[in-house]
């Protein structure tokens, strides 16, 4: 699926040829469209900052246990000695922010907010990535099928998209989260909740990308290079995978990077509403939900809120940059 943007591969192949051709031809070395897009993306500073933040967040999520070990306290550890037992708020100024507790402690239990934000990144990113993967997977398969085969196949899939788009997703999510027992499908606890969120968010978002892919496929199907491939005896699957899909990589990639932040927000919203991952497992949305009840301690809301804000912003900036890089005609 990512073949044409597989830049390192083609670059690897191109290098020996360029060396063989010698000094004279070095200056006019041919570049694939993927390489050109990559060069353009590298020049886009805003997008690269976004990419840097995304990479940073992914590293934090991956190495959460190590980071917490070095800079904080376990996310579920209570520090009641930090809490004023009467008012239930942290004793020290600024919510107990210190070298020991970088972001302070949360009210009532005195858990380390820094550790909870770091661990929250794991849940948020995991759900956002996998849900996006699910949407993109279903959307691409059904979109290409509808667009390429047309006729009644297209009609059935398009109507299915309409049904999904008209679905009251939030109501369904709240209802489903309430109905599903603590153990189901061989999963339990956080694993079950995370899978459920991935399913809800991913499964109901596919029609958006499905429509984009279907529209693109419809127009690609009529392009002359498809006719040319057919005139040389190419089969249907060959045309789908070699001729149509590579041209869909750009829109799919762009849409994915813009879908991830919206999924992060949706996950946070669901956690905020209490239908996400259950406490005490830290999630950004869940922390905001807790913070909303105890408004005398603003820092409790600021840090997870800032985390959501930065993540969403970084993905959006990167997605915009990617779109500009892959679609040069969209220049402003």
């Amino acid at each position: 699926m990512t073949a044409p943007l597989d830049v390192p591969e083609s670059a690897k192949e191109a290098v020996p040829e360029a060396v063989v051709t010698g000094v004279d031809r070095k200056a006019i070395q041919g570049r694939s469209l993927g390489q050109i897009a990559w060069l353009r993306l590298k020049r886009d500073k805003v997008a690269m900052v976004g990419a840097g933040v995304i990479l940073f967040l992914i590293l934090i999520a991956v190495f959460a246990p190590l980071i917490v070990k070095w800079f904080g306290h376990p996310p579920l550890e209570f520090h009641r000695d930090m809490i004023d037992q009467e008012t239930q708020v942290p004793k020290d100024r600024f919510g107990g922010i210190s070298w020991d507790y970088l972001f302070g402690v949360d009210p009532q239990w005195g858990r380390d907010i820094f550790s909870r934000v770091v661990y929250g990144a794991r849940i948020s990113l995991l759900i956002a990535f996998l849900a996006t993967l699910l949407s993109v997977g279903i959307g691409t398969i059904l979109g290409v099928t509808a667009g390429f085969f047309g006729g009644w196949v297209d009609t059935v899939i398009s109507r299915l998209m309409d049904v999904f788009l008209a679905f009251p997703l939030l109501v369904f999510a709240i209802a489903l989260a309430g109905v599903v027992p603590d153990t189901a499908f061989g999963l339990s606890g956080d694993a079950l909740r995370v899978s459920l969120l991935i399913f809800i968010i991913g499964f109901f978002n596919w029609p958006y990308i499905g429509r984009i892919v279907r529209g693109q496929t419809l127009s690609l199907r009529e392009r002359e290079f498809v006719d040319a491939a057919r005139s040389l005896g190419a089969r249907g699957p060959y045309i789908i995978f070699r001729e149509v899909l590579p041209n869909l990589v750009a829109p799919i990639l762009i849409y994915s990077t813009l879908l991830i932040p919206s999924n992060i927000l949706f996950e946070a919203a669901l956690s905020f509403l209490g239908v996400g991952v259950r406490p005490p497992t830290p999630t950004w949305g869940g922390m905001l939900s807790d913070a909303a009840r105890i408004y005398t301690v603003p820092h409790y809301a600021i840090f997870p809120g800032l985390a959501i804000f930065l993540t969403v912003l970084a993905f959006n900036l990167f997605g915009d940059g990617l779109r500009d890089a892959l679609d040069p005609r969209g220049n402003r």
Binding site: G34, E224, D227, A228, S231, G233, R242, E243, P246
Partner: peptide, 20 residues
């Protein structure tokens, strides 16, 4: 097609796949 009969198209830029 291809083996027994083949076609040359009018506009080779649009008849060739830009990614390969």
């Amino acid at each position: 097609r291809g083996k027994k009969m083949a076609m040359i198209f009018q506009d080779p830029l649009s008849a060739m796949h830009p990614y390969y």
